[in-house]
């Protein structure tokens, strides 16, 4: 499904990603861990198509298509979703209205018909309950005045409506207390199936207690320095990153 080959990227002339190789097959959940500044968020943003990063080498294919050549909205159309570490506030833009435009944008990209208002509302009702998002937030401006937990839950809610093929969770656990963390993880787990893949970017092992990955990769200085099963996360929790980074150096 997703194949990253020797990916290099830089910001303002400073190399951040220095040769990433990663293959994600349908239904798999991969955790990307690593110390601060290792390039975790850069990887998420490069995959979603944020401006400001220069890809200097390598390739990314998604379902056979060259992902890096697509605009962000086209990537969404292909089924890539990024849950933001810091979801932005958009004053005056109704949450559900935005989501409807997004869903219909994706459907138009796929050559599908727009969803009727009635069908859309039905979908929203079902999903909002599944994710446990306060319904009163639906008609508020996007993320405006939301608490940290509400913002993250809103990301998962959007994901559940847009039904991506690959979801990238960028430090979704940051700033969450344990209850909010559990709730968000439940929302994510409800979406896991044999076709949908996840890349879970996190600094802490804690999130992976709830979203149990198939593979764990450790990123350091822009390279994956170690890969393993879910037990690798526990080892990192116990021993920290130092033994790996010094080994790699």
């Amino acid at each position: 499904m997703l194949e990253i080959k020797n990916l290099h990227a830089e910001v303002d002339g400073k190399p951040i990603l220095r040769g990433i190789d990663l293959v994600v097959r349908p239904g798999e959940t991969h955790a990307i861990m690593g110390p601060n500044g290792s390039g975790k968020s850069t990887l998420s943003h490069v995959l979603a198509g944020r401006e400001g990063y220069t890809v200097t080498g390598g390739s990314v294919t998604f379902n056979g298509k060259p992902l890096l050549e697509l605009e962000p909205e086209e990537r969404a159309g292909e089924g890539v979703f990024l849950a933001f570490q810091y979801p932005v506030e958009i004053p005056g833009v109704n949450n559900v209205y935005m989501l409807k435009a997004a869903l219909n944008g994706i459907r138009a990209y796929r050559g599908e018909k727009e969803l009727s208002a009635v069908d859309f509302l039905k979908l929203v009702k079902a999903r909002v309950q599944a994710v446990g998002l306060d319904e009163s937030l639906l008609n508020r401006p996007v993320n405006e005045g939301f608490s940290g937990g509400e913002k993250k839950r809103n990301e998962v809610f959007q994901m559940s409506v847009l039904e991506p093929r690959l979801a990238i969770l960028d430090e979704t656990d940051s700033g969450l207390d344990i209850d909010a963390l559990k709730a968000v993880a439940e929302g994510v787990n409800a979406l896991r199936d044999e076709a949908r893949s996840f890349i879970v970017v996190t600094h802490y092992q804690r999130l992976l207690d709830y979203i149990v990955p198939d593979y764990v990769h450790v990123l350091s200085k822009g390279r994956i320095i170690k890969s393993g099963g879910k037990e690798l996360a526990l080892e990192l929790e116990a021993r920290g990153y130092d033994w790996l980074t010094s080994e790699a150096a």
Partner: peptide, 23 residues
């Protein structure tokens, strides 16, 4: 970027933000 990453084209995203601003 937030709106575009959700599948909304650039011009529509700008319109959405501007209309929100004027609400």
């Amino acid at each position: 970027f937030y709106l575009r990453s959700r599948g909304i084209g650039q011009e529509d995203a700008v319109n959405m933000i501007v209309n929100g601003f004027c609400k």
